[in-house]
Each structure stands twice: as C-alpha cells, then as structure tokens.
C-alpha cells in the first residue's frame, strides 16, 4: 500500500502529474494514463475533497476481512480535477450528502493493511446536523 498512500506525515494519496498533458492521475503510473505522455512526476494529492457518490457495502466482498458494513464512494479533489474511489468512514448512506467536505484518513484493516478512506469534515458535519 505504500505505493498508494504516504503516511510519513499527514496521510496523502500518491498520484502522478504530467506537465505536458496538464493532468493528474491516481494511482501513480509510468506514463500519463490520458495522453501517454512520458513526463510523469510523483505528487502528493490533496487530502480534502467533496463527496460525489456514495453507498455502503453490506456483505464482505471476496478477500476482505475488515468490518461490515463499510462506506464506499467517490470523492472529488477539485485542485487536481480527479475523482477518487475510496472507502468512507461513514457506513450509513443516509448520513451523507452530495458535495459535503471530506478529509483523507488512514484506515487500519486486518493483516497490518492500511487503506485510504475519507471521513466527513467534523466542523461541516456538525453544522449540517444542527441545521
């Protein structure tokens, strides 16, 4: 997982950027997946984004030994123009809404596996639930 997630300081996803195509990608690839440009630079992606799609997984998929249910969705990183497929810390879809601010967290799973996940930003969540 170290190829996907940098845990040396605050967690960050490791992606790529091609100056000639102007596009970011994830996970890090040897060439730009959109243009084939051969000038990819390794970058740390933004740790904050907005929720674009979400659901919950209610039965363990093949090879998975972590908690059930778990949240699953897509978060938009506007700065990089990317949509990231991710686990979500919130397993109840009714507690999430489109566009809400999310923050990257490290998710510790069985077998010393650290997956990436996104959690609702606490401040914004408190604001939404009180309104």
């Amino acid at each position: 997982m170290s190829t996907y997630l940098d845990l040396s300081s605050d967690p960050a996803l490791i992606g790529g950027f091609s100056p000639s195509s102007g596009r970011y990608h994830f996970p890090l690839a040897t060439v730009c997946p959109y243009t084939g440009a051969d000038d990819v630079e390794e970058v740390r992606l933004s740790a904050t984004g907005r929720l674009w799609a979400w659901t919950a997984v209610t039965a363990a998929p093949p090879g998975y030994e972590g908690p059930i249910p778990y949240g699953f969705g897509i978060v938009e990183l506007e700065a990089e123009g990317l949509r990231i497929v991710t686990r979500l810390t919130e397993p109840d879809p009714s507690r999430l809404e489109a566009g809400q601010p999310m923050r990257l967290v490290a998710d510790h799973l069985p077998g010393d596996l650290v997956a990436w996940s996104f959690a609702p930003e606490e401040a914004s969540f408190a604001t939404e639930t009180s309104s």
Binding site: M1, A60, P61, P62, G63, E65, F72, R87, L109, L113
Partner: peptide, 9 residues
C-alpha cells in the same frame, strides 16, 4: 491488496 481493502466490492 484491492480485495483486502474492500475495493473489489
């Protein structure tokens, strides 16, 4: 690693 992370759902 995708299966173990629950990403093969």
């Amino acid at each position: 690693w995708q299966e173990q992370s629950g990403l093969a759902a």
